[in-house]
Each structure stands twice: as structure tokens, then as C-alpha cells.
Simulated scan of single mutants.
Amino acid sequence: MAFEPNVPPIQVHLCVKDGMAAIAFYEKAFGAQNTFCQLAEDRKRVMHSNLSVFGGEIMLHDEFPEFGGSVLSPETIGGTGVAISINLPAAAAVDAAYDRAIAAGASTVLEPQDTFWHARYARIQDPFGHVWAFNAPVAKP
């Protein structure tokens, strides 16, 4: 895969267990489009995948403990220290993104609500242990 000219300055790169299931989840939950997928030699695990979503890109791969296990999934380490924040254009988009993710199998961390920082905000955890936050501006009172 060649380095593409319009790579964003920051990208999300996720490690999961069952990469093909993760790709299917992100397609259903977030409307992601799988733009590249390279399977490992075992033809079961995802070596590398690019997903176009929310105007950005997610890179994704399965765990490969045989390569030293330096990058592990939240399932293996028992949680995550990161939340991925998706900034949306309108408050209604937060509710829609939350509802779609929950319907696809995500669990609620924080239901959609208006916050003190004048945003509509919600958090979910995907079935692979990653936490996602949806955020959009609301009018100041």
C-alpha cells in the first residue's frame, strides 16, 4: 500500500480481536466504508484495514502476539485508556450516531445529554472494547 497524499495529520489506529467482525460493526454502527483490507497469511486475521468514516480514517488490525505483542486490544488488556471523540455538526447528529451504534451492538457509557460546555455529548463502548464519544455544539442559553 502506497502512502497516500491526503493522509490526515492524526489517524486512529485500532487493535482488535476479530478484525473482520470489527469492520462489519463499524460499517453498520458508523456507516464506515472499508477502503483497503489486507489479510494475514492465515487468511483469518486482518493485517491492515482502512475505514473511511465521519470524514476521517480508522486504521485497524487484529492482534499479532507472534510479533511481540506490543499492541494489544482492549479485550486483552482489560480496558482502554483512550476515548475517540467524533465531532459532529449538529446536536441531532449526536443522538442519531448514538442510536445507530447502540442498535449495532455498542453499549452505553453515557446517554446523549446537553453539557456545561454547550455541547450535545454521548459515549458508547463498541463490542471490541474501544470507547467513542460523540460531540456537537448546542446554542448557549
Score class of each variant (00 low, 15 high):
83 A>C: 10
129 G>W: 04
19 G>E: 08
20 M>Y: 00
97 A>N: 04
21 A>H: 09
54 F>G: 02
125 Q>E: 14
62 D>W: 05
19 G>C: 06
126 D>V: 08
11 Q>A: 13
140 K>V: 15
7 V>P: 02
17 K>E: 15
128 F>A: 01
100 R>Q: 15
121 Y>L: 08
35 T>N: 08
125 Q>I: 06
83 A>M: 08
103 A>Y: 12
68 G>P: 03
42 D>A: 13
103 A>P: 05
103 A>R: 14
27 E>T: 09
42 D>N: 15
37 C>P: 03
15 C>V: 15
94 V>L: 09
33 Q>T: 15
36 F>H: 12
134 F>D: 00
124 I>R: 00
77 I>V: 15
58 I>M: 02
14 L>N: 03
43 R>V: 04
12 V>M: 13
128 F>Y: 12
68 G>K: 10
72 L>V: 11
62 D>A: 02
17 K>L: 13
63 E>Y: 14
98 Y>V: 00
38 Q>K: 10
40 A>P: 11
32 A>S: 11
54 F>C: 13
44 K>V: 15
98 Y>F: 15
108 T>H: 09
10 I>H: 12
133 A>I: 10
92 A>N: 12
8 P>T: 10
27 E>H: 06
69 G>M: 08
128 F>R: 06
112 P>I: 11
31 G>N: 07
76 T>R: 09
72 L>C: 10
11 Q>M: 14
105 G>R: 05
128 F>W: 11
69 G>K: 11
26 Y>F: 14
18 D>T: 03
88 L>Y: 08
32 A>E: 02
106 A>G: 05
108 T>C: 06
12 V>N: 10
59 M>G: 01
72 L>N: 13
88 L>K: 02
140 K>F: 06
4 E>T: 10
110 L>T: 13
121 Y>S: 07
119 A>F: 03
23 I>K: 04
21 A>R: 12
59 M>A: 08
62 D>T: 04
104 A>V: 07
15 C>W: 08
25 F>V: 01
139 A>M: 05
135 N>S: 11
88 L>N: 04
99 D>S: 11
54 F>E: 05
111 E>L: 06
95 D>P: 07
114 D>S: 09
69 G>C: 05
42 D>C: 13
26 Y>E: 05
46 V>R: 06
3 F>T: 13
138 V>K: 08
76 T>D: 02
1 M>V: 09
40 A>M: 15
53 V>P: 03
56 G>E: 07
102 I>L: 11
108 T>L: 01
125 Q>S: 09
4 E>S: 11
109 V>T: 11
53 V>T: 12
43 R>S: 13
137 P>Q: 05
62 D>R: 02
67 F>Q: 14
111 E>C: 03
130 H>L: 04
124 I>L: 01
66 E>N: 12
65 P>K: 10
2 A>Q: 13
14 L>S: 01
